[in-house]
Design a protein around this nucleic acid. Structure first.
Lengths: 221, 221
DNA sequence: CTACTATTCAATAATATTGTTGAATAGTAG
DNA sequence: CTACTATTCAACAATATTATTGAATAGTAG
């Protein structure tokens, strides 16, 4: 084999390590969650309904292809995405969304029968924010809120939403968001709120999308 | 299985179609070439030293994952990348380059022993261009030049370079570029030019990189 | 030291991907 | 109509990936 050909083979072989890492649906789900903030193996396993051993193995594949980093913190090992990885994942998601028609179908099928799930669009929301006429709820686990959230949003993890109902305004629009279009937390939140007589809407975008649109993101409590 | 879990499984399954498409080194090489402009199956097979049947099969995988489009033109079928795919590929390449140390090693090993291959950096080149003190050669096949090239560059496909030597300036710097850092055309061009007594340098960036840096790209003859 | 915990390892069977080969197809040219 | 061409299909063996299971490890807590 010519040296030129061998060079190319070796280079593209290395490139394909990144591709192999994102060629498996479970690993993509893990990456998606990690892009919300670092997590322990156990936490990821719970979130994805996967056995812990499988989760660990997939995380090691991601680590070997350099898409995630690992750090021991006390009793736990936490994983987090490497730099640029979340942007890369977003770019992949965008291609899939615009090019693969099945995704729209799956979404529609899932939402069929659920009322009031048409997502609020960004411009309407920005307008309401400027008028101070909306409450924005971040219904993800609190640790993800801390790692980064839409400026002005309040952290109300889905599990705590039931207890917080009394503190929410009945006469003002409530907008709930979570990790993005394929995370069901905000859907469940809006369902509950509307059943309880609130005027609730869903924001489809997650923090990643929000940031990518150039809109303000805060972190901490 | 809960409806929520099934929804996620189906969605990430769809996302992984994109990942699977880019998990194979041959397909990545095909994509890389296609990002220079559309090509026939035969042309791609020749360029990659692959059997035609394999090339066709890989192209169909890319088509099924919606990363490339197909069009019959006369006797040939031409393939071209779908919108956003080249940006996605570039983003993947960037991650690989910065995170996977082996790539740098492979490059160094390949370049070892070749003289004068240190690439010229962008700012130096821009300075020379402003002074009109440089000739830029695009040494890719002419069809790729037509599909898009650095503004001001001259098309001299590597095969024709030998015949064109007489027309090139001996007293002025010559900069050759091709598809990017992993395409060997510009390396061969610079080797030849320096052997013939020209003052030649290599530009590592390709048209994609050039455009991504916000620099002017032209197309046509 | 012992018990315990979170994570990783190892081995297996089931499934999927790969390159290769030669044949089939569809469309062009004469 | 016939010959030809570019591409695709089909089938195979070789290899790789996957989920699952239970055991091993390393480090913490008491």
């Amino acid at each position: 084999m010519s040296p030129n050909r061998q060079f190319k083979n070796e280079i593209y072989e290395q490139f394909s390590r990144i591709g192999k890492a994102v060629s498996n649906p479970r690993r993509l789900e893990l990456l998606d969650i990690l892009c919300q903030g670092e997590r322990t193996v156990e936490g990821l396993a719970k979130e994805t309904n996967m056995p812990i051993a499988s989760t660990s193995q997939h995380l090691q594949v991601l680590k070997n292809s350099r898409l995630v980093e690992q750090e021991k913190k006390g009793l736990y090992v936490v994983y987090r995405p490497a730099p640029m990885v979340c942007e890369f994942f977003l770019s992949m998601r965008r291609i899939a969304e615009t090019r693969i028609a099945e995704i729209e179908q799956i979404k529609n099928r899932f939402l069929a029968g659920k009322e009031g799930m048409e997502p609020i669009d960004r411009d309407t929301l920005l307008h309401r924010i400027r008028e101070d006429a909306v409450t924005i709820l971040d219904v993800r686990p609190r640790e993800e809120f801390k790692a980064g959230h839409i400026e002005g949003a309040v952290s109300v993890p889905l599990e705590e939403l039931g207890l917080m109902l009394a503190k929410l305004p009945k006469n003002q629009e409530i907008v709930a968001y979570c990790r993005g279009p394929y995370c069901v937390l905000s859907i469940q939140a809006v369902e509950l709120l509307n059943k309880e007589g609130f005027h609730a809407l869903r924001l489809e975008e997650g923090v990643q999308d929000w940031r990518a649109m150039g809109l303000p993101v805060a972190s901490g409590e």
